[in-house]
Amino acid sequence: MHSFAEAFGQAFALIVNFDADLREIVFLSLQVSLTAVLVAAIIGLPFGALLAVSRFPGRGALVVGITALMGLPPVVVGLVVYLLLSNAGVLGPLQLLYTPTAMIIAQALLITPIIAALARQTIEDLNDEYDQQMTLFGLNAIQRLVTLLWEGRFSLMTALLAGFGRAIAEVGAVIVVGGNINHVTRVMTTTIALETAKGNLALALGLGIILVAIAVTVNAMVFALRGTAERAAYA
Protein backbone atom coordinates (compact mmCIF):
# COMPACT_ATOMS: atom_id res chain seq x y z
CA MET A 1 0.00 0.00 0.00
CA HIS A 2 1.77 3.10 -1.20
CA SER A 3 -1.11 5.44 -0.36
CA PHE A 4 0.83 6.92 2.54
CA ALA A 5 3.91 7.65 0.50
CA GLU A 6 1.65 9.14 -2.15
CA ALA A 7 -0.19 11.18 0.47
CA PHE A 8 3.03 12.64 1.83
CA GLY A 9 4.08 13.39 -1.72
CA GLN A 10 0.76 15.16 -2.33
CA ALA A 11 1.05 17.07 0.93
CA PHE A 12 4.57 18.12 0.04
CA ALA A 13 3.50 19.22 -3.44
CA LEU A 14 0.58 21.17 -1.97
CA ILE A 15 2.83 22.95 0.48
CA VAL A 16 5.46 23.74 -2.13
CA ASN A 17 2.88 25.16 -4.52
CA PHE A 18 0.59 26.57 -1.83
CA ASP A 19 -1.68 27.95 -4.53
CA ALA A 20 -4.39 30.56 -4.09
CA ASP A 21 -7.16 28.00 -3.60
CA LEU A 22 -5.34 26.20 -0.82
CA ARG A 23 -4.33 29.49 0.76
CA GLU A 24 -7.95 30.58 0.78
CA ILE A 25 -9.09 27.34 2.37
CA VAL A 26 -6.39 27.36 5.03
CA PHE A 27 -7.06 31.00 5.83
CA LEU A 28 -10.81 30.44 6.13
CA SER A 29 -10.28 27.40 8.37
CA LEU A 30 -8.11 29.43 10.70
CA GLN A 31 -10.39 32.43 10.60
CA VAL A 32 -13.49 30.39 11.41
CA SER A 33 -11.95 28.22 14.11
CA LEU A 34 -9.94 30.94 15.83
CA THR A 35 -12.93 33.25 15.92
CA ALA A 36 -15.03 30.39 17.29
CA VAL A 37 -12.44 29.85 20.02
CA LEU A 38 -12.50 33.55 20.84
CA VAL A 39 -16.29 33.63 21.08
CA ALA A 40 -16.34 30.42 23.09
CA ALA A 41 -13.63 31.81 25.40
CA ILE A 42 -15.50 35.04 26.00
CA ILE A 43 -18.59 33.04 26.96
CA GLY A 44 -17.07 29.87 28.38
CA LEU A 45 -14.29 31.25 30.57
CA PRO A 46 -16.42 33.62 32.68
CA PHE A 47 -19.22 31.09 32.78
CA GLY A 48 -16.89 28.32 33.94
CA ALA A 49 -15.31 30.64 36.47
CA LEU A 50 -18.68 31.74 37.79
CA LEU A 51 -19.75 28.13 38.07
CA ALA A 52 -16.53 27.39 39.95
CA VAL A 53 -16.96 30.02 42.64
CA SER A 54 -20.71 30.12 43.15
CA ARG A 55 -22.92 27.81 45.15
CA PHE A 56 -26.60 27.45 44.33
CA PRO A 57 -29.16 24.66 44.14
CA GLY A 58 -28.76 22.63 40.99
CA ARG A 59 -25.11 23.60 40.57
CA GLY A 60 -23.97 19.97 40.67
CA ALA A 61 -26.40 19.04 37.92
CA LEU A 62 -25.25 22.00 35.84
CA VAL A 63 -21.60 20.96 36.23
CA VAL A 64 -22.43 17.41 35.14
CA GLY A 65 -24.48 18.78 32.25
CA ILE A 66 -21.76 21.10 30.96
CA THR A 67 -19.14 18.40 31.30
CA ALA A 68 -21.32 15.94 29.40
CA LEU A 69 -21.83 18.49 26.61
CA MET A 70 -18.10 18.26 25.90
CA GLY A 71 -19.10 15.19 23.90
CA LEU A 72 -21.65 17.00 21.71
CA PRO A 73 -21.70 15.40 18.25
CA PRO A 74 -20.74 18.08 15.69
CA VAL A 75 -23.41 17.02 13.24
CA VAL A 76 -26.09 17.51 15.90
CA VAL A 77 -24.80 21.01 16.60
CA GLY A 78 -24.79 21.60 12.85
CA LEU A 79 -28.40 20.49 12.55
CA VAL A 80 -29.54 22.67 15.43
CA VAL A 81 -27.79 25.70 13.97
CA TYR A 82 -29.14 24.85 10.51
CA LEU A 83 -32.70 24.70 11.82
CA LEU A 84 -32.24 28.04 13.57
CA LEU A 85 -30.57 29.84 10.65
CA SER A 86 -32.61 28.29 7.86
CA ASN A 87 -35.01 30.63 6.14
CA ALA A 88 -37.70 28.45 7.63
CA GLY A 89 -36.15 28.91 11.09
CA VAL A 90 -36.51 31.65 13.68
CA LEU A 91 -33.20 33.32 12.79
CA GLY A 92 -33.74 32.99 9.04
CA PRO A 93 -34.12 36.75 8.48
CA LEU A 94 -30.49 37.23 9.54
CA GLN A 95 -29.46 35.50 6.29
CA LEU A 96 -26.52 33.76 7.93
CA LEU A 97 -26.92 30.24 6.59
CA TYR A 98 -24.12 29.14 4.25
CA THR A 99 -21.80 31.89 5.48
CA PRO A 100 -18.59 31.73 7.54
CA THR A 101 -20.51 33.39 10.37
CA ALA A 102 -22.83 30.38 10.54
CA MET A 103 -19.77 28.12 10.77
CA ILE A 104 -18.35 30.24 13.58
CA ILE A 105 -21.63 30.04 15.48
CA ALA A 106 -21.77 26.26 15.11
CA GLN A 107 -18.16 25.73 16.18
CA ALA A 108 -18.50 28.18 19.07
CA LEU A 109 -21.53 26.24 20.30
CA LEU A 110 -19.60 23.02 19.94
CA ILE A 111 -16.58 24.11 21.98
CA THR A 112 -18.05 26.47 24.56
CA PRO A 113 -18.92 23.52 26.85
CA ILE A 114 -15.36 22.20 26.51
CA ILE A 115 -13.84 25.52 27.50
CA ALA A 116 -16.40 26.16 30.24
CA ALA A 117 -16.01 22.71 31.78
CA LEU A 118 -12.21 22.79 31.78
CA ALA A 119 -12.23 26.38 33.08
CA ARG A 120 -14.62 25.38 35.85
CA GLN A 121 -12.24 22.70 37.10
CA THR A 122 -9.16 24.91 36.85
CA ILE A 123 -10.78 27.90 38.54
CA GLU A 124 -12.37 25.81 41.26
CA ASP A 125 -8.98 24.38 42.27
CA LEU A 126 -7.41 27.81 42.08
CA ASN A 127 -10.18 29.41 44.10
CA ASP A 128 -9.58 27.04 47.01
CA GLU A 129 -6.01 28.28 47.07
CA TYR A 130 -6.68 31.98 46.48
CA ASP A 131 -9.95 32.58 48.33
CA GLN A 132 -8.62 34.05 51.58
CA GLN A 133 -5.81 35.96 49.93
CA MET A 134 -8.29 37.63 47.59
CA THR A 135 -10.47 38.60 50.54
CA LEU A 136 -7.41 40.24 52.08
CA PHE A 137 -6.83 42.14 48.83
CA GLY A 138 -10.34 43.51 49.30
CA LEU A 139 -11.54 42.25 45.91
CA ASN A 140 -15.18 42.28 44.91
CA ALA A 141 -16.82 39.36 43.15
CA ILE A 142 -15.97 40.50 39.63
CA GLN A 143 -12.37 41.36 40.51
CA ARG A 144 -12.06 37.89 41.99
CA LEU A 145 -13.21 36.24 38.78
CA VAL A 146 -10.85 38.33 36.70
CA THR A 147 -7.95 37.57 39.04
CA LEU A 148 -8.67 33.85 39.01
CA LEU A 149 -8.93 33.79 35.23
CA TRP A 150 -5.65 35.63 34.88
CA GLU A 151 -3.87 33.50 37.47
CA GLY A 152 -5.15 30.38 35.73
CA ARG A 153 -4.11 31.67 32.32
CA PHE A 154 -1.58 28.96 31.57
CA SER A 155 -3.98 26.11 32.36
CA LEU A 156 -6.82 27.93 30.65
CA MET A 157 -4.68 28.28 27.55
CA THR A 158 -4.68 24.49 27.33
CA ALA A 159 -8.47 24.55 27.58
CA LEU A 160 -8.59 26.99 24.69
CA LEU A 161 -6.26 24.79 22.67
CA ALA A 162 -8.51 21.80 23.36
CA GLY A 163 -11.37 23.87 21.99
CA PHE A 164 -9.36 24.93 18.98
CA GLY A 165 -8.35 21.34 18.26
CA ARG A 166 -11.94 20.25 18.28
CA ALA A 167 -13.07 23.18 16.13
CA ILE A 168 -10.42 22.96 13.43
CA ALA A 169 -10.86 19.18 13.15
CA GLU A 170 -14.63 18.89 12.99
CA VAL A 171 -16.49 18.54 9.72
CA GLY A 172 -20.00 17.52 10.74
CA ALA A 173 -21.18 20.94 11.84
CA VAL A 174 -19.54 23.19 9.25
CA ILE A 175 -20.60 21.10 6.29
CA VAL A 176 -24.25 21.35 7.31
CA VAL A 177 -24.36 25.07 8.11
CA GLY A 178 -21.65 26.18 5.67
CA GLY A 179 -22.67 24.00 2.74
CA ASN A 180 -19.05 23.51 1.61
CA ILE A 181 -19.50 26.22 -1.01
CA ASN A 182 -16.40 26.70 -3.12
CA HIS A 183 -14.60 29.99 -2.32
CA VAL A 184 -17.19 30.87 0.33
CA THR A 185 -17.46 28.25 3.05
CA ARG A 186 -14.99 25.58 2.00
CA VAL A 187 -12.54 24.79 4.79
CA MET A 188 -9.86 22.13 5.27
CA THR A 189 -12.14 19.45 6.69
CA THR A 190 -14.93 19.88 4.15
CA THR A 191 -12.36 19.83 1.35
CA ILE A 192 -11.00 16.58 2.74
CA ALA A 193 -14.54 15.18 2.83
CA LEU A 194 -15.13 16.26 -0.77
CA GLU A 195 -11.85 14.81 -2.05
CA THR A 196 -12.66 11.58 -0.23
CA ALA A 197 -16.02 11.53 -2.01
CA LYS A 198 -14.22 12.01 -5.31
CA GLY A 199 -12.07 9.02 -4.45
CA ASN A 200 -8.92 11.17 -4.41
CA LEU A 201 -7.74 9.50 -1.24
CA ALA A 202 -4.09 10.50 -1.47
CA LEU A 203 -5.00 14.14 -2.01
CA ALA A 204 -7.47 13.96 0.88
CA LEU A 205 -4.83 12.47 3.12
CA GLY A 206 -2.31 15.07 1.95
CA LEU A 207 -4.73 17.82 2.96
CA GLY A 208 -5.15 16.00 6.27
CA ILE A 209 -1.40 16.14 6.82
CA ILE A 210 -1.47 19.88 6.19
CA LEU A 211 -4.36 20.24 8.65
CA VAL A 212 -2.34 18.46 11.30
CA ALA A 213 0.64 20.66 10.50
CA ILE A 214 -1.51 23.76 10.98
CA ALA A 215 -2.76 22.48 14.34
CA VAL A 216 0.80 21.75 15.42
CA THR A 217 1.91 25.23 14.33
CA VAL A 218 -0.87 26.96 16.26
CA ASN A 219 -0.11 24.91 19.37
CA ALA A 220 3.62 25.53 19.07
CA MET A 221 3.02 29.26 18.75
CA VAL A 222 0.85 29.30 21.85
CA PHE A 223 3.40 27.34 23.84
CA ALA A 224 6.20 29.60 22.64
CA LEU A 225 4.16 32.61 23.68
CA ARG A 226 3.49 31.02 27.01
CA GLY A 227 7.16 30.28 27.52
CA THR A 228 8.05 33.89 26.80
CA ALA A 229 5.31 35.10 29.10
CA GLU A 230 6.48 32.81 31.88
CA ARG A 231 10.08 33.87 31.52
CA ALA A 232 9.11 37.51 31.55
CA ALA A 233 6.50 36.73 34.21
CA TYR A 234 5.75 40.36 34.38
CA ALA A 235 2.25 40.87 33.15
Binding site: Q132, Q133, T135, G138, L139, A233, A235
Partner: peptide
Protein backbone atom coordinates in the same frame (compact mmCIF):
# COMPACT_ATOMS: atom_id res chain seq x y z
CA UNK B 1 -16.14 46.08 55.15
CA UNK B 2 -14.20 45.24 52.00
CA UNK B 3 -12.74 48.72 51.76
CA UNK B 4 -11.21 48.41 55.22
CA UNK B 5 -8.69 45.80 54.07
CA UNK B 6 -6.35 48.60 53.08
CA UNK B 7 -6.00 49.41 56.79
CA UNK B 8 -5.79 45.88 58.05
CA UNK B 9 -3.24 43.41 56.83
CA UNK B 10 -2.71 39.74 57.30
CA UNK B 11 0.07 37.37 56.37
CA UNK B 12 -1.48 33.94 55.90
CA UNK B 13 0.35 30.87 57.13
CA UNK B 14 0.61 29.86 53.47
CA UNK B 15 0.56 33.17 51.63
CA UNK B 16 -0.54 33.02 48.02
CA UNK B 17 1.86 34.62 45.59
CA UNK B 18 0.41 35.53 42.22
CA UNK B 19 1.90 34.12 39.04
CA UNK B 20 3.69 37.34 38.25
CA UNK B 21 6.97 39.01 39.12
CA UNK B 22 7.82 39.88 42.70
CA UNK B 23 7.32 43.54 41.92
CA UNK B 24 3.95 42.93 40.25
Amino acid sequence: ARSDYRRLGMLLQHPVLLRRSALA
